[in-house]
Design a protein around this nucleic acid. Structure first.
Lengths: 118, 118
DNA sequence: AATAGTGTGTAGTACCTGATACACAATGTC
DNA sequence: GACATTGTGTATCAGGTACTACACACTATT
């Protein structure tokens, strides 16, 4: 889908490869469990969708944040979607309201919720 | 996908139909823009996926909440997904943290954010 | 009794998702 | 020079998504 994901992980992978030959496209593909030719297409942004599972495996292998990589490939984590679907009216409302908040305001909310003030 | 959506809207539609014959399956299908036979399958929970667009049209026609109907058919509104994808790490974190909050606590958050305390 | 309207069964369609399998040329390594 | 490894091109595929089109039997309406 999104053209951003492929080039992004290609760059990350090649950076790692410079210090560690275990990060060749073929080796990564093998560890992740996909065909090298398919990962090649993915990295070049050709139409080659990856499942959430494979994206997660790549994020582990490359040491990247899974939710970021999912976002770059146009997805939202299945567990987050499920949380929303359990209380759709409530959660969609708060998410839409938070859209325009600056990062630091959202972060403050995260902390306050985590610290059990609610 | 989800078997809950179909029977749910069938019940709602038939309730409306009792007071207004404009809510026959065929009439609703026509207003919504799908074939009656397809809506029939949908309402009986047979494998007949609906696009977000059609689900929204049904929600308008039946006077139901769109986000609820989307959730019942296993979806999350595209605009909400896009908000999350723009700041994936921040938003997935706060959503996961809010999972265990009771409704009234989330509601309080909604109000405080809306009232510009942030 | 004819007509209109109701819900449903069956078949078919086009495109998307998420891949595999194999071949190939270029580059690196022994 | 042989062998291994690298990235990529092409073909193919099964299943899911999101529908249409038409026929049919049954029930209301006029």
């Amino acid at each position: 889908m999104s053209t951003a994901f492929g080039p992004y992980i290609r760059e990350k992978r090649e950076a790692l490869k410079k210090q560690d030959k275990r990060f060749s496209l073929r080796k990564v593909a093998q560890r992740v469990g996909i065909e090298p030719s398919y990962l090649s297409k993915v990295e070049r942004g050709l139409p080659a969708p990856l499942s959430e599972e494979k994206i997660r495996a790549i994020s582990v292998d490359l040491g990247e944040n899974a939710d970021l990589l999912l976002a770059l490939s146009g997805k939202v984590s299945a567990d987050v979607q499920e949380i929303i679907r359990k209380r759709p009216e409530l959660f969609t409302e708060i998410i839409r309201q938070m859209e325009d908040l600056p990062d630091n305001a959202v972060l403050r909310l995260v902390r306050e919720v985590r610290d059990g003030k609610w």
